[in-house]
Amino acid sequence: MYAQMVKSESTDESAEAIAFQARIDAGEKIEPKDWMPAGYRKTLIRQMGQHAHSEIVGQLPEGNWITRAPTLERKAILLAKVQDEAGHGLYLYCGAETLGVTRDELTEMLLDGRMKYSSIFNYPTLTWADMGAVGWLVDGAAIMNQVPLQRTSYGPYARAMVRICKEESFHQRQGYDIMMKMANGTPAQKKMAQDALNRLWFPSLMMFGPSDAESTHSEQSMKWKIKMNTNDELRQKFVDQTVPQAEYLGLTVPDKTLKWNDEKGGYDFAEPNWDEFFEVLKGNGPCNTERLAARNKAWDDGKWVRDGMMAHAEKRKIRKVAAE
């Protein structure tokens, strides 16, 4: 997901930890100043940070097409969508900051590679059809994970997710709208739409993370209600929802093994290539270097603005005091 393979810390057996778990089991929300196990705090910082970084880095593949959108309207819509992603990152950063980490620390950990962002944003967006496929598939996969997270145990995280979910559905629908236009367009446009689906299908399935059997961190996080569903549950749900949408477009999901399974009431489908997933996480995806370089450049180039505005604010404050 936007937070993949988040390493979960273990809890302890103190009386406080037991009482804390009882609060979570009773459906209570944990708030910033409440007692919480160090592991809960640490895992949440990692997860919310990774989630925020994904929103921020996720602007890059789409920003790639703003200047080349086919119409002024498409351009305005894409701009609004990319601006939303910045907003989502900011909601999540400010949520993470309530746990006792600063914004600059989080940013630095992204920039020097100590913290990750979702594997999906290390894939390139080669054609305009990718803007459709990203909205439809990537935001669609994100929604699968984010809707249940509105009920997560940490109050500021849950509240950020409520805001994000309200906006996310616009993202998915604008993507599907692009896909509909292209799938019903000229043969060349339909081919572009199919090509985008071919390239982004498996990377989208990877967003949910490896199979639960191999996901060692799930159990504690689920107990703490900072992870609400297993990776496999969400992936299944995503496939079941998306396949009929592809059929409606007249496009073919690039999986020859894909087949409806009456018994389980869902599709059987092929696993993505997990070796590729781990390579991308390690930094060897097609765009890892480019994405991190872009974020580092933005941070470095913006330094004079951050410093200048702070200096200006301080100068004004001193003048104001002097005038009083």
Binding site: P32, K33, E97, T98, L99, G100, V101, T102, D104, E105
Partner: peptide, 8 residues
């Protein structure tokens, strides 16, 4: 204050 202390 409203939030826990940060290292900073």
């Amino acid at each position: 204050s409203a939030y826990p202390e940060t290292p900073a």
